[in-house]
Design a protein around this nucleic acid. Structure first.
Lengths: 201, 201
DNA sequence: AGCAGGGGCAAGTAAGTACTTGCTTGACAT
DNA sequence: ATGTCAAGCAAGTACTTACTTGCCCCTGCT
């Protein structure tokens, strides 16, 4: 069982890498099997189908994301701290999956099984954040002259573009210093300086 | 000749829409032909191959982009004006292509012909903007405590995410008011408030 | 009238790809 | 020793997809 578990993990790891590099549709089951050092037939025996691999992958990602979220949510912190933490979580999660989620998002509408997996994830995230922001616009912590949805979009734009550029051009082309914790902090600070009310910043 | 020209245009229009919706690899030549109201064979007669359609599309886009760029570059304007104009150009161009460029960027590494078409475009854009920003950090118009490359990344992140969300979730889910000129302005303002030096904003 | 060129239609080829089947091997447990 | 389970290997099926070929029709020019 532990051996079987091991090969499943290896297959999922390989799939993660290939899906995030080439996308779901462009990745062949043979390529996944080869990258995992496993026979293609084994892939089908473990996970029924290519879509099965995707589902298992989704489950594993959700689990890890939940793990990250669980060790958070102390509610006695400032808006700035909350948003920064959210940004970190977003970026960490995205980086860990090698940009998998973002990459798959682009296939959600053309590949049915990908759409199913992602479901309502992204829109609801955006709506949720917009609500949170609107609330703190009312309390005066955030500037009120910008539509909260625009603000939410800008926030996700920053975090996702952080990952996006690393995917679109090879990671090699990205200056090393941006790739650090400080890079995230600077990026967030840019957003924060723009979004906070004058008194807060 | 004008008839032939017309069908070519229709094919390119259809390809633009489909490529930006589903990506290059996932779009079949038959789908393009159907969408253009044309026989699949005609597509191959006009443009040699699927890659040929892509090349023609690239040429047409470059032409239009050049057109937009040409009617610009008055150098006696402020940094803010320059950047806002750039943001508008970016977004307009991206929207006009239905997000084509961004979508294709994700396929650049897995589909050779797409990679060829896009070439060095994106990295050089980023570098160029970073240089411009660094220059104006020195003159004190932009805050100096943020890496110019991070700033450039944030800028492109904003503009591209504007388009991205409209692609990832159906355009229908996007609140209409964000989709206006004012949305762009707000988004840019968010960036500007974060990036400008204290005296400038 | 004649002819050239753009385009439709039917059919076919070659390659790739998800997925299947049947058989073998090796490790481990009883 | 015998059975079980994971995994490899070879081969094949069914389907999709880029691209081809051959033939026809129509329009417009001379």
């Amino acid at each position: 069982m532990s051996a079987a578990h091991g090969t499943e993990e290896r297959i999922l790891d390989a799939a993660t890498e290939l899906f995030s590099e080439r996308g779901y549709a462009a990745t062949t089951t043979r390529a996944i099997a080869d990258a995992a050092g496993v026979n293609e037939v084994t892939l089908f025996r473990r996970f029924e189908s290519k879509a099965g691999v995707l589902r298992a992958l989704g489950a594993r990602l959700a689990e890890r994301q939940a793990g990250r979220a669980a060790q958070a949510a102390p509610d006695s912190e400032s808006v700035r701290e909350t948003l920064l933490r959210l940004a970190r979580m977003e970026i960490e999660g995205a980086i860990e999956g090698g940009g998998l989620a973002i990459r798959l998002a682009f296939e959600a509408r053309s590949v049915p099984e990908v759409g199913e997996l992602l479901g309502e994830g992204i829109p609801s995230n955006l709506e949720g954040l917009a609500e949170y922001l609107a609330e703190h616009q009312r309390t005066g912590e955030l500037r009120a002259d910008v539509d909260p949805r625009v603000m939410a979009e800008a926030f996700f734009g920053l975090t996702s573009s952080y990952v996006m550029y690393r995917m679109v051009m090879g990671a090699a082309d990205v200056p090393a210093d941006i790739d650090s914790d400080e890079g995230i902090e600077q990026l967030f600070d840019l957003f924060w300086s723009g979004a906070a009310s004058r008194e807060e910043r």
